[in-house]
Design a protein around this nucleic acid. Structure first.
Length: 641
RNA sequence: GCCGCCGUAGCUCAGUGGUAGAGCGCACCAUUGGUAAUGGUGAGGUCGAGAGUUCGAUUCUCUCCGGCGGCACCA
């Protein structure tokens, strides 16, 4: 029997006469750790504490404090839930139940739907199983035996899963008491380790294997943590997220509404539209500075053009169409690119004009599936901050670099500092030859490398005409939103016959770079509202300042102050209502107005204002001129600074 | 589109087989009050739409529409 040397994370080495289990290793290090140990980690692989280590290796003992512990806890909670469900509802089949961000889910096949009341019963049963504290024991099974076993007990989904596992895969089962599940593991030592820090959250439908052609299963989502304190903190976070829901804030702040006669389309109210226009003005200024030209193309275009572009074939079901009396069919544009190519095609374009950066705040309509609609985040009528850069292959790199720089700067101005980039390559169904895709992917990869930014691969997620970069920003409460995109397209210029005259006097195909920074104004505004919880930065706020009087003696002066703010380009309102100042402060604070200028007799006498910031406790007493100058500076959009 | 839940006043919600209530908001009156709710009075609802069961439906059943949570989709 050969010796085993185990290196611990602190660099120390433990020698053993032969193979040793994780539990034995922990015990050898110390009794405290032996008690706290949940699993072991060799390289980056987490394994059961009962696994035996038979070769020299670097091993970390996973305890409840470890990052890896959460994954184990969540996965085990899913197992416990599955047992509970099968105990309460015989005949229910189990399928899969992974750990996910903040929790877990398990998909079940059962005729009768679960109800919210069932969740409580299941939780109670889970508590019993956890209290029972059964050991999770691992068994390796023969593949055929495993398939037969699950088929015999009527678990056809499990049998199918095993059947489809790669031949090289070891079939492992985990037992907890009398209940057993197919599982790759690893698991905690016993069900008791799950603890009480979990809660079942919601019921949902989910397709077997994520395919909408398959039957629908019932999914139960839960959240699970190290202890009740962490659970409580997470539930608080969920409440916080609900408070910043843009649909709720949009209504409370009177920014916009939806109604059933125009499902998926926004009715922008005055304040909401002011926010929208402010953002548009800012983006337009940034594009101007970055040497884009702006255009506007038709809403309705004959289906012939969509057939030529390839969109009709692929997206016809999601296009709104209109038929005219002369039997022509027009489509409401779902995107702007074919329109931009038409402008590009007018007259002859010289290589000297490239790169040509053609921008449009393009109003698009897409018949999105009803279940996809979600406030401003997913609508059927939206406006993109779209642009197409017509350029040569040689220019892809420099245009990509310039775009990345512009995009990051815009995000920063909007309050987003954390951005990750994903490289999405060719999807299964696509247009264009593989050789063209090779070139497009290589060019884009080279360009993003040249920009010096980190990126991860998002395989198979490219557009049907070309690979793309996806720009994902992280908001104030840690949620990720994909907004920006840059797509390399060699296909559409070919299909729609766009060409330019090169240095050699011959016709050449330009490359098109499809790109957007915000994505859609609607969605980006939704993200902004949630990011700021409705408390927009000064430059975006629909109403930037309210002048509020203490008594009616200050009315005339208050109006003068409002007019001075207005003349300085500040969006200001005046509140001379016969209400107490407490009432006004509360109301405008709830409306999330960033600054309030309170004026009473003292301010009238001294030509001053009492400046109060949203959420602040103190006031600043300033001369009127100074207050106006200061607020005017703060109100400028970042492109004006 | 699929699965589940939901639809009562502008908003948040209570309630009932015999056609409805609260708080906030809104209107009016009084109050002129120094930094997150002054008091009083009043108006406001085909109980999402349609059909069915019933002597009678907001309440029970069905269909449709819409919303919510997921799944699928996202040029």
């Amino acid at each position: 029997m050969s010796n085993v040397a185990i290196t611990l994370p602190d660099g120390s080495v433990k020698q053993f006469d032969g193979p040793v289990t994780g539990a034995e290793l922990a015990a050898a290090i110390g009794p405290g750790l032996a008690k706290a140990a949940l699993a072991i980690k060799i390289d980056s692989e987490v394994l059961d504490l009962s696994r035996s280590i038979d070769a020299d290796s670097t091993v970390e003992i996973v305890t409840r404090k470890s990052e890896d512990a959460l994954d184990l806890i969540r996965h085990d909670t899913a197992h416990v839930m599955a047992e509970a469900v099968q105990a309460l509802y015989p005949g229910t089949q189990v399928t899969i139940g992974p750990s996910i961000e903040n929790g877990f889910y398990y998909d079940f096949a059962r005729e009768e739907p679960f109800t919210p009341d069932d969740l409580e019963k299941i939780e109670a049963k889970m508590m019993e199983i956890i209290k029972r504290d059964d050991v999770f024991s691992r068994e390796e099974w023969d593949r055929d035996d495993a398939v037969r076993h699950f088929t015999d007990i009527g678990e056809k989904y499990k049998a199918q899963l095993i059947h489809d596992l790669p031949a090289t895969e070891t079939i492992s089962m985990y037992r907890q008491g009398d209940w057993m599940d197919l599982c790759r593991g690893p698991h905690l030592p016993s069900t008791g380790h799950v603890g009480k820090g979990f809660k079942l959250l919601k019921l949902a439908g989910a397709y077997w294997r994520g395919d909408s052609n398959n039957e629908m299963l019932q999914r139960i989502y839960g959240t699970s943590w190290r202890d009740e304190k962490e659970l409580k903190a997470h539930l608080m976070m969920l409440e916080e997220a609900e408070k910043r829901d843009h649909r709720r804030l949009g209504r409370e702040m009177g920014l916009f509404h939806f109604q059933e006669e125009a499902v998926g389309s926004v009715f922008w109210h005055p304040n909401g539209w002011t926010l929208y226009r402010t953002l548009e003005t800012y983006i337009r200024a940034r594009l101007d500075k970055a040497n884009y030209v702006e255009v506007k193309t038709p809403q309705l275009i004959d289906r012939g053009l969509w057939e030529a572009s390839g969109h009709w074939e692929k997206f016809r079901d999601h296009m709104f169409t209109a038929e005219t009396e002369d039997d022509r069919v027009f489509a409401l544009k779902p995107m702007n690119c074919p329109g931009h190519v038409q402008i590009f095609r007018q007259g002859m374009t010289s290589y000297r004009e490239l790169p040509l950066r053609m921008a449009e705040f393009g109003s698009c309509h897409r018949y999105e599936p009803s279940g996809a609609l979600h406030g401003l985040m997913r609508v059927r009528a939206f406006t993109q901050d779209d642009a197409h850069i017509f350029c040569t292959e040689d220019q892809i790199t420099s245009e990509t670099e310039a775009f990345c720089e512009l995009l990051l700067s815009v995000y920063k101005d909007c309050g987003f500092e954390e951005v990750v980039i994903k490289f999405a390559d060719r999807p299964e169904t696509r247009a264009g030859e593989d050789a063209v895709w090779d070139r497009a992917e290589a060019a884009l990869a080279e360009a993003v490398e040249a920009s010096g930014l980190d990126y991860t691969l998002n395989p198979g997620e490219g557009a049907f005409y070309g690979p793309k970069l996806e720009f994902v920003l992280r908001d104030a409460i840690g949620r990720d939103w994909q907004c920006g995109t840059l797509q390399v397209d060699f296909v559409l210029p070919e299909r729609l016959d766009a060409s330019y005259i090169g240095e050699d006097g011959e016709k050449h195909r330009p490359v098109m770079l499809h790109r957007a920074i915000l994505g859609s104004f609607e969605r980006f505004i939704g993200i902004l509202i949630e990011n700021y919880a409705g408390r927009m930065p000064m430059w975006m706020a629909p109403v930037q300042a309210v002048v509020a009087t203490i008594t009616s003696d200050a009315d005339a002066y208050a109006i003068e102050v409002r007019n001075a703010l207005d003349a300085a380009g500040i969006r200001a309102e005046v509140d001379t209502r016969n209400e107490k100042i407490n009432y006004k402060v509360r109301e405008h604070s709830l409306a999330k107005v960033p600054t309030m200028l309170v004026v009473g007799q003292r301010e009238v006498d001294d030509r001053k204002v009492a400046l109060r910031r949203l959420g602040g406790k103190d006031q600043e007493f300033l001369a009127l001129d100074e207050a106006v100058a200061r607020l005017a500076e703060e109100s400028k959009n970042p492109a004006e600074k």
